[in-house]
Structure formats: structure tokens, C-alpha cells
Nucleic acid binder design. Structure first.
Lengths: 302, 302
DNA sequence: ACTACATATTCCAATTATGAAATCATGTTA
DNA sequence: TAACATGATTTCATAATTGGAATATGTAGT
């Protein structure tokens, strides 16, 4: 019915059935029959037509005037939605956290750029959460819960946080055995984790540590460097300290405890259709992150 | 396609396929399949659905937001157009010329009111052409050419105009034999026929008379009364002078000549669908006028 | 874990729409 | 006036869609 109305509007615009048939790539027979069907359902003739004449009836004109604008809007909407949806080339604006992007995930970005040379990636790295909507970003990678209800999100993985310190530091200050021992240590906090909600992996026992007199910085990388320099114990995502752990510059403390798992999310503005490029990147990221055991929420096993 | 989109919008609104099926009176199987087809054509899933869960996907939400308003508008338009189109009761506002309506066509109005008692006729008689659009009139009866391009019209009949005078007057002033004789007579003109374009019925010969020093009035009825009172010769529609001719109070002069035929038209605002009531009246008027020989353009034969 | 329930989906026969070619209708030109 | 050309319509075989019944699926309450 709606389709037939749309067809009629086109017929009225092209002033002819065969012209419309050609334009819309449907056989003329179909145009004739659908118009006839519409006329039957509406119970009136819409077009006075013959081989050489074409004229809307009064009713046809009324229907045309009523529907033409709507049909046009419909088609514009369809065009807006589907443009871009199949194109795997052109610009793609992406936001991501700096630290993980120049660290653990740097190979992912290289791989993506290599795999899709036609996609012109514009990667905006930043540690603070910038507004996705006003920045006209297609899709963003985010870590930790996202509060913006204007965003859609898809979980790609998660990263555990653990307590760490430099071996030197631990030699000098002693290794904490129980949670309460933390009170006697220098602590380094990162601003987005001001309170340490810890949990024992097996027993699910949980506890909260409020690092009061701690050093506080707003960058994970800096925090890990401070810890590495023997300035205290910090709660950091394993993704950021992989190298340091492997090379023994940092070591885990209070091993049965670990901090909150932080989700890794692809987020994008809601109410807008994800472009093919953005979907492509999202799926690519998901595949990559799935292979990275550190990003599966498991405690790192070296 | 458009129909499927509309269906999807309803599904999203009713939050369920079967609810939608019931609401729209289509089998649930159809709803399922049309949704599946739409998902296939769009190339993405629109709804995460199971027996107990129902949730739009990100894409589904994007499509919903894009189309919901349009679908609603479409349906409102359809409702506006079809309301009234099948209802043969309620108010019907009609305009018509005063003279013919209280004269020759008066029986027609009575007959219509009698035939359709459920139609609440509001008949606005006037001799001047009032604006149909601003008066919210459904349909109007008009005589003579209508210039307003915002109107649709349908010809219902036509009425001839002839030259007439009172027998008394002709006795005193003499009966004109040729056109030029009119120059020596008193003439009465009606404002909507300031120039007399005359024609011989058989020979098609035509002539124009410019009644200069004539009495001029703006109402046909008054003109016929003036002529009846022996004040001169006038060019009048036969429909207005039927009685006077039959009773010998007026007689035709220069019989082979007659004035322009004036069309009787049903007119209504363009771009709006004629309601069933208005169509009903239009067709009723056409039938009635067809039976009235005076209104078939023929010279009156008593 | 099992059952009951509500909902979505699949199956099959009947209907309906489609596409390509032939036919028809009607203004225009020779 | 007849032939022509253009565009609408019909024809017929094929493909797609529909409606009703049966089936599958997932959730909530014993």
C-alpha cells in the first residue's frame, strides 16, 4: 500500500507509467498493475491516461499533494541511512585512550591501517573522555563504564587491575601480607580509580581500601613509572604494566587480590546508523582483543 | 519495502510481533517473515527477539528513530484523506447562486434533503462569488466560467441566455427585426454580462452589442422584473424567466439570436479530496440538471 | 530440573505479484 | 485517410507472499 502510493507519486512526477518504470527499473506491466490496484483500493481513478495523454484526476491530485512531500522525505531518509553503510573507504574518525593505544593496542592500529588501506583513519588519542557527539566521531574505544546514555556500546573485552610495586621498594619497605598492611605503605592512585575496590579471585571476598595520604596522578602511564621508580604501591591495569612485569621492574603484591575489571568498549552515538567503516573497525577491534589474553579479564599469566 | 518499514515501526512500538499482528490484523507468520525480509534487505538485525525478550538492536533503534515520525505522518495523512470519504452523514457546507436556487433549482434542493436526511445540509446562497476556500465550503454550484485556478470543476449543464422584453413595451416601442434595431431601444444589462456577445443558433453568425446608455443592475432577478415592468430589453438566462415567458409577461425578441451559453458547474477546492457527501451532492445535482431541458443549453421550448 | 506458558518461527497449500512478450489504443505524420 | 509510433495494458508462465496449523524456543514458577 505505502509502496504503491510511493509508486503513484513517482508516476505523477514523471508524468507517465513507462517513464516511471524505466526510472525505477521495474517492468511497465508492474507499474500499470500496481497503479490499478491502488486505484481499486482507494476506490477512485487517480490518473486519466492513454497512450498520448496523461492527466491526474481531481482525486489523483489530492492524493499527490498529500503524499508527495512525505514520499520524498521517506526516500531522503532512506538515502541518508544507507549512504555510507556499504562504503569501506573514506574518512573514519575514531577516539581512543592514549595509553593503551600507544602501548598494548598499538599493533592493532597498525594492523587495521594495513588491512584497510582505503579507510582514511583519523585517530584521536586522549586520556580524558571527550564528547563524542560534538566531536563528530564515528566510533570510540573506551575503557571502564560509560555513563552517557546517548551512546551505544559493545563490550570488546576487559582488563584486570592489580596491585604492583617495584622490587626495590618492596625489599626496603617489606611485602604486604594482608590488606591492612597497605596502611603502612606509600600508595599511588590514578584519578579515575580514587577508591580501590579489591576482590579475591577465588573466594569473591571483597574489600575497599581508601588510599588517603597517597600520591595522586591523572595518568596511568605516569603512575606506573612512579611505581617503577620505587615510589610506592599502585593499582594499575595489567595491560599497562605487561612489559614491566615481564622484565621484573614491577612485581605484583597481595597476589590473591585484584582490583576491578574494567570493560573495554566500543561506543558510538545512539540513534545514528553505524557506518560500514565503523562497524568494520569495531569488529576488527573485537577480533584483535579476543586474541589478547590480557584483555579477556583474566589475571595475567606470563 | 516501505510497507515493511512501517510494519517494523509498529513492531517496535508494540514491543512484540504477535501484539503487532493482532493490532494490524495480519497473521503472526506474516509479521515474522516481513521483518526477516526487511532485516535481510537492510543487511542487519533490527530486533533481538525471543519468546520472552524483546529489544531493538542499535541498528533497529537507528532505523526506528529515523522512520517512526514519518510512518506516523503517513498514517495520519491516510486517515485524514479517508475519513469522510465513505461517510454519508454529517455536515455538508454548500454555496450556490441565490436566484437559480430559489427558482428553477429549488425542487432539487428539496429533493436532495429528502433523499439524504442524514446529510446535514448547510446551504449558503449568494449572488456574488464568495471565496470558497476561506469559507470552508465543501462544494459549490456556480454559473458561468470560474477563473480561480485553485478550484476543480465539473460541468453539470448549461443555460442559454436570450433577449427579452415585456409585450407592452414591444407594442409601444416596436419589435426589433435586426440587431441594429437594438440601438433604438432601452436596454437593461446585468453586471456580469456587460457586453452582449450574440450568436445565431443555426448559422453560427456572431455579433457583439455594447449596450452603452443602458440601465445596469447587479441582479438577474431585478433585471427580469424591470424588463417585465416594460423598462426595456434585457439579455437573461432562460432559467430565470421560464415562468414569465410561459405566462406571457415577457417575450423573446430577435428570436434567431441568443446570448452566450453559461456553464453550470460544480466547483470545489483543489488539492483536497472530495468527501463522499460532496460527491453525492455533485452527482445528485448532475442527475437533476440532466433532466431539466432548460439547463441543457438548448433554447427553451415551452 | 521439570512444567506451563507465551511468543516466535517454520511448513504447506493457496493466493497473489512479477517479468517478458504480445496486444491494444490513440494521437501524429505522410 | 492510412500507416506509424508511442505508451498502456493484457497474457501466461514463474516466482514470491500469504494465512493457518504445527512446531520450536526461551522464561518463570513450581
Amino acid at each position: 500500500m505505502l509502496d504503491d502510493i510511493a509508486l503513484f507519486v513517482h508516476i505523477a512526477q514523471h508524468r507517465g507509467l513507462s517513464a516511471t518504470a524505466e526510472m525505477l527499473k521495474v517492468p511497465a506491466a508492474t507499474v500499470t498493475r500496481r497503479l490499478q490496484k491502488l486505484e481499486t483500493t482507494l476506490g477512485c481513478r487517480l490518473i486519466h491516461r492513454s497512450a498520448r495523454k496523461f492527466e491526474l484526476t481531481a482525486e489523483g491530485d489530492a492524493y499527490y499533494q498529500a503524499y508527495a512531500g512525505l514520499v520524498k522525505q521517506f526516500e531522503e531518509t532512506a538515502r541518508d541511512l544507507s549512504s555510507d553503510v556499504h562504503q569501506l573507504h573514506g574518512k573514519l574518525k575514531v577516539m581512543a585512550p592514549t595509553n593503551i593505544s600507544i602501548g598494548l593496542l598499538q599493533p592493532m592500529w597498525s594492523a587495521f591501517i594495513g588491512a584497510y588501506p582505503d579507510i582514511q583513519l583519523e585517530l584521536m588519542l586522549n586520556n580524558q573522555v571527550e564528547d563524542l557527539l560534538s566531536s563528530q566521531v564515528d566510533i570510540a574505544l573506551r575503557i571502564g563504564p560509560q555513563i552517557d546514555s546517548q551512546l551505544y556500546q559493545k563490550r570488546l573485552g576487559s582488563v584486570a587491575t592489580i596491585l604492583l610495586a617495584a622490587p626495590d621498594y618492596l625489599e626496603q619497605q617489606g611485602r604486604p601480607e594482608v590488606l591492612e598492611d597497605l596502611n603502612h605503605h606509600r600508595l599511588i592512585t590514578v584519578s579515575n580509580l580514587p577508591v580501590w575496590k579489591l576482590q579475591k579471585i577465588k573466594t569473591k571476598a571483597s574489600a575497599t581500601v581508601n588510599p588517603i595520604a597517597a600520591t595522586s596522578v591523572n595518568d596511568i602511564r605516569l603512575a606506573s613509572q612512579l611505581a617503577r621508580d620505587g615510589l610506592g604501591i599502585s593499582l594499575l591495569p595489567v595491560s599497562e604494566v605487561k612489559e614491566e612485569l615481564q622484565q621484573g621492574r614491577l612485581e605484583q603484591v597481595l597476589a590473591p587480590w585484584c582490583g576491578p575489571e574494567r570493560d573495554i568498549l566500543a561506543v558510538w552515538p545512539s540513534g545514528r546508523l553505524l557506518s560500514a567503516k565503523a562497524r568494520c573497525l569495531r569488529d576488527f577491534m573485537q577480533q584483535h582483543i579476543q586474541k589478547e589474553s590480557i584483555l579477556q579479564g583474566r589475571m595475567m599469566v606470563i
